[in-house]
Nucleic acid binder design. Structure first.
Lengths: 203, 203
DNA sequence: TGTACATCAGTGAACGCGCGTTCACTGATGTAC
DNA sequence: TGTACATCAGTGAACGCGCGTTCACTGATGTAC
């Protein structure tokens, strides 16, 4: 049977990706429960009606959007690691500094979903919960692969420190409070990762 | 002017405290946005209609409930510290073990609001946000007061590690995954607090 | 002591609104001839 | 090349429902006599 294409072959797929892409940001910025379908579609320049030609439910979009968020985050971290290596800097310090940076603090919609959504993830329906769990494990492995061998077993705690401290910093009232928490978090992460503070300061 | 009391003097106040008390648990268990006024009143054995004779708005109850949650948490931690001291154990290890315990993991409704609500707190209206910020600062001071002097400047990072790791553990799929993350978190917290793992194991 | 009454904590129906979802439709498109 | 048409991505109104909030009321209570 001949398949007749009325619209450009990838028209619908492009739109779908646009929805998932903007949802990945909005969900991290505003939270899952607090984000509605109408708003998520509006962010992609569309109206609510078309939503269900692309996704079976809001949860289905949330699941895909969180998967995309994770892919983006991993890509950013890989770039940090690659750049550091190319310049002869420590990859783990680059990861720590990138995670606990003011840039990351100010842009929860573009950052790690663990710190942006935190406890809300554990309350989601099973498929979404599992997606979040997979994201967590990927990040732990990514950290473990950059930490000196004797400290690799601490990768989970290091991720906990990074994501927990960024959340606290985002709660800080003044810019100074926020910076102080980020600084504390970086120093502590260096200690856990077994890298010297001296190197860190130099980097 | 004579004040005539038709109901027992503290009747209304008792009811109000009951609402705040159950809300403090429900909000931490289910999240703020996901908890409705009808449900919060039902948890206290009441119907929605009476809500506004007690509180000006949902946000007003949330604010009070989070303050109560913080008072309860501080009381629990003070008890942990007092018990440890009475038995000659390390207070900071007692705090760390209490925070990263399976008991705390399983009961987000009874635990630290930072790990139960996480990123949602930073998205609340200013008064609630400030309440959460105050809770964070109280916990940081509490930790700082129990950590050896040279490491007191790390109290914020230690709190970040505790709350972040507990959140990750709650995301863990299996009981073993959860336990592994709690274990990692405890070891890492001992390191940051400058207490020996040996002592910790013995405690 | 017993009865009538003023009080007010709490009830339950209703408000407008936004939610997630459904559906009849519209109009821009590529194809057929 | 130009026109008619079949397709289908996207629109916008509507569904039932639960939200936060309001309000007329009810009925259990302590007080007055």
């Amino acid at each position: 049977m001949k398949v007749i294409m009325r619209y450009p072959k990838d028209h619908k797929e492009t739109t779908r990706r646009r929805i998932v892409g903007s949802a990945a940001q909005t969900l991290r910025r505003d939270g899952i429960v607090a984000s509605g379908v109408i708003g998520l579609m509006a962010d992609a320049g569309l109206t609510q009606g078309g939503f269900y030609t692309h996704f079976a439910s809001k949860d289905a979009l949330v699941d895909e959007a969180l998967q995309l968020a994770m892919v983006e985050t991993r890509r950013k971290f890989s770039r940090l690691v690659a750049d550091a290596r190319a310049e002869g800097r420590s990859a783990i310090i680059a990861l720590i500094d990138g995670y606990l940076s003011e840039r990351h603090l100010e842009a929860p919609g573009m950052g790690c979903l663990l710190s942006s959504l935190g406890a809300e993830l554990a309350r989601q329906p099973e498929p979404i919960r599992r997606t979040a769990e997979r994201a967590m494990n990927e990040l732990i492995e990514l950290i473990a692969s950059e930490v000196p061998a004797p400290y690799q077993g601490r990768a989970g705690a290091i991720l906990g420190l990074l994501s927990g401290t960024l959340q606290l910093a985002r709660l800080g009232g003044t810019r100074n409070d926020q910076r102080a928490l980020l600084d504390q978090g970086r120093s502590a992460a260096y200690v856990l990762a077994g890298v010297e503070m001296r190197n860190a300061a130099a980097a």
